[in-house]
Design a protein around this nucleic acid. Structure first.
Lengths: 168, 168
DNA sequence: TATAACCTTGACGTAAACGTTATAGTAGGT
DNA sequence: ACCTACTATAACGTTTACGTCAAGGTTATA
């Protein structure tokens, strides 16, 4: 269901001179390509994470290959336990300010990279904490000896078993 | 505010023959002893995690030393970031899956934890790779090499960096 | 017996990231 | 023209682990 009738937004060039018309995606197509849902895409738009590049004459959202790439990036970051707000921070860095001189651009890039690095460090720390947490949970669960499963209320077991010998 | 007037529940023995009357705790006392809130205890009761051993004549919830121990266990498990539902499972009060014996349940929990750990390890690896990638870019940007200034915006980097070079 | 400090049930509020209607307009094929 | 599949906006529902009233009983103490 490729859509041909489109509205030109004020800023967008009439048509790419090199190609005979860009290939747009509807919201459903983009969602399917990325294995997500239409609702999710509309929600991401609300969150200013990603929006359509234009609308059709009938107000349909239209996306392109750039959208696809960006959405995949968003989803990948989400898979790494970034919250949407954090993703906005990471991906929003590029669009924040338009620097003009090369020095300003360089400085801006430097700051972006440093902020990205900081966010990644934070994520690594969070995940590391989660990991040691899970390891503690595993020790707890693995510390359970079989006799404990039969314990009479109030009976005492060994140390590791302490959390699991509590009966109703 | 130790409560003396109590109602005997049908199942509970009249009174412990060894002690001259059990020492009951009101919900507020139990909460304070464990550093939690009354609301939390009532919520745990709703979740079937822990309830009063009996009620007073005036319908007050009454707990005992056993409750105290159990509540501490619950809170300890929570400290390990078990969800309340997981705590129910670990304590053998509830099985979401079709496993019926406590051993099977524990084995299920163990496997789930190991999977989670593997997932987290993978994420940490990815993030670590992204981090060193960004560090490489930072070194590039911070290097004195002027030609490098020409290729930064939108230029392509290596694999790990793909999520961060996506523009709006 | 009055009073403070508890306790009771009930019910609504919170945050994140969507899911799920409901109602109505649109794209494309026959 | 008509049908089907898709899309639009709007708005309410879901989950977790409680917080926070509200309106009213209860307990122990003065």
């Amino acid at each position: 269901m490729a859509i041909r009738q489109t509205i030109q937004t004020s800023e967008s060039n009439p048509e790419s001179p090199l190609e005979g018309g860009e290939d747009f995606l509807t919201i459903g197509e983009l969602a399917k390509l990325c294995g997500t849902t239409v609702r999710t895409l509309r929600y991401y738009e609300e969150m200013d994470l990603i929006g359509p590049v234009k609308r059709s004459t009938g107000k349909y959202r239209l996306y392109n290959q750039h959208s696809l790439k960006r959405l995949k990036a968003i989803m990948a970051l989400q898979g790494l336990n970034f919250s949407l707000e954090e993703i906005l921070e990471v991906l929003g860095l590029y669009s924040k300010s338009r620097s003009y001189t090369k020095e300003e651009q360089l400085e801006h890039t430097r700051q972006s990279l440093q902020q990205q690095k900081a966010l990644i460090d934070e994520k690594i720390n969070q995940l590391t904490a989660m990991k040691s947490d899970i390891e503690a949970r595993l020790r707890t669960v693995e510390g359970v000896c079989h006799p404990c499963l039969e314990h009479i209320p109030g009976d005492s077991c060994n140390e590791q078993c302490q959390y699991l010998e509590v009966h109703p």
